[in-house]
């Protein structure tokens, strides 16, 4: 219990630091959104228009940084991240809530799938080391070495252009309105298959390799030999004794990759023009949309923190040695 409270306090402090940094960093960037609009219109804006833009974005009042900071926090608690500049006048929270589910579902499912499949394959390969199964390792290595954007482009050119069985871009059929109808969900799944496959393929090899190596290490531990000597079934020894211990290092890696689901999908979503949060972040940065950037950064930071916390607690559940007492 004490362990739990200590960890929670640690994460609250970290979250505060992250949110504060998130507030200051965009303000340290050179330029402002009005400047970027002026550049966009290449000097065809009158000074009056510029002035009204400043008023519109609320950048005319010369409020102090501290006041901004306090306002920022009160806004956060109300779920108010401000209004997006690029999608004006849509609130940031709405932009995020429209793009986040796409990323969470696509990348979430494929990351979890990649981890589960990769770890199971690693358990099998590690358990049967020194047999033909070791021949699969170079193949896995090959796929993990391919840069992801390239794998994505190859997948598109192969399965969307040369053999057009999957759509090349987008999250759903253009004519459909997002709702919970069978048509829409079917279309969303159909559009998600190719990007999901590329994510699974590029991530699975890493899990296979790390799990296989841990399995080989753990298999020579005395307690695995003892389990064999006790006459336990092969399955029990393999999963309960060997894999149960070998998976521990993978758990923290997995939790980290869960945290990067939200933030690390920029490439996937750009390659597949997928309407997720990475794509939105890319647009926000290129148009200096501070409120949207801040909102997305905050979501990314918090999801990494939450994933870390989950990893900590999962570790405490799985490995009794980490439950420090006193």
């Amino acid at each position: 219990m004490k362990f739990l409270i200590r960890r929670v306090i640690f994460y609250v402090i970290t979250a505060w630091a992250a949110v504060t940094l998130n507030f200051f960093i965009p303000r340290l960037l050179p330029g402002d959104p009005v400047q970027s609009l002026i550049n966009k219109y290449q000097g065809r804006l009158s000074t009056d228009a510029i002035q009204s833009l400043y008023v519109l974005f609320g950048l005319d009042e010369k409020s102090s940084l501290w006041d901004d900071y306090v306002k920022y926090w009160t806004g956060l608690f109300k779920g108010d991240f401000g209004i997006s500049f690029t999608y004006f006048p849509t609130p940031v929270s709405e932009v995020i809530s429209q793009s986040l589910p796409w990323t969470l579902l696509l990348v979430g499912i494929s990351t979890v799938l990649g981890f589960i499949l990769g770890t199971l394959a690693g358990v099998g390969l590690g358990w049967r080391r020194g047999t033909w199964a070791d021949g699969l390792l170079p193949v896995a290595n090959f796929f993990s070495a391919i840069p992801y954007f390239w794998l994505g482009l190859i997948a598109i050119s192969l399965f969307a252009v040369i053999i057009p069985i999957f759509p090349a871009s987008g999250g759903y059929e253009g004519g459909l309105i997002p709702d919970f109808s069978a048509d829409f969900i079917g279309s969303a799944i159909y559009h998600g298959i190719l990007p999901a496959l590329t994510i699974v393929i590029s991530s699975i090899a890493g899990w296979i390799l790390s799990m296989r190596n841990m399995m080989v290490t753990v298999s020579s531990e005395d307690y695995v030999t003892v389990a064999q000597a006790k006459g336990l079934s092969e399955r029990k020894v393999m999963f309960g004794y060997a894999a149960r211990n070998a998976v521990l290092p993978s758990i923290s890696g997995f939790a980290l990759s869960l945290g990067f689901i939200v933030g690390g999908t920029l490439v996937t979503e750009m390659v597949f023009s997928y309407p997720g949060i990475g794509f939105t972040l890319f647009q926000a940065i290129s148009s200096k949309d501070y409120p949207l950037m801040q909102g997305i950064f905050l979501i990314i930071t918090l999801s990494v923190l939450v994933a870390n916390m989950v990893a900590d607690f999962a570790y405490a559940v799985l490995d009794p040695r980490t439950r420090q007492e006193g």
């Binding site: 307690y223 030999t225 064999q228 006790k230 211990n245």
Partner: peptide, 23 residues
């Protein structure tokens, strides 16, 4: 073999520290 193990022949190993599954 599995049925025979432990029922007929049990073993105490060298490494007292590592013979038990830590989890």
């Amino acid at each position: 073999l599995r049925a025979q193990r432990w029922r007929d022949t049990a073993i105490v190993f060298q490494g007292a520290m590592n013979s038990l599954n830590p989890v």
